[in-house]
Amino acid sequence: MARFKKKKASGQQKINTASLPDIIFMLLFFFMVTTVMREVTLIVKIKAPEAAAVQKLEKKSLVSYIYVGVPLKSGIYGTESRIQLNDAFATVNDIQDYIIKEREQRDEADRKFLTTSIKADENTRMGIITDIKQELRKIGAFKINYSSRKIYDLKK
């Protein structure tokens, strides 16, 4: 009972690419998961001021944001500068609570590295910013960052 195997056609063997989609999907999921889309929907208009000597804000997970600007729907909310915390308008008195909540969300070891980023519109008056800073001082959130867009010095 001799069996004859058909000889395979000699030629280039095709590489199995069946796992290629899996690899790409893995990359895809990696990117989908790592990109933090935690940005809140802004309800105030913010155009950050320009500055040249800026530093990068590192470790975004350790940053809490305070937004200050004129409400987008100024017809309803007026044209006075307002503070936005999370997704709602707030007053200066809410800042301490907000910072406490932000602290509680973090690991105890990370709490002292918490930075507060003040994202304010360039036409805001300093009065409201000063009030925010006073509240932050009271609660002990000393590390702050004035968010600003980087411009390059032409002279350099």
Partner: peptide
Amino acid sequence: VDTGITRKL
């Protein structure tokens, strides 16, 4: 990238 002027109160 968030940039800004860092200060310590």
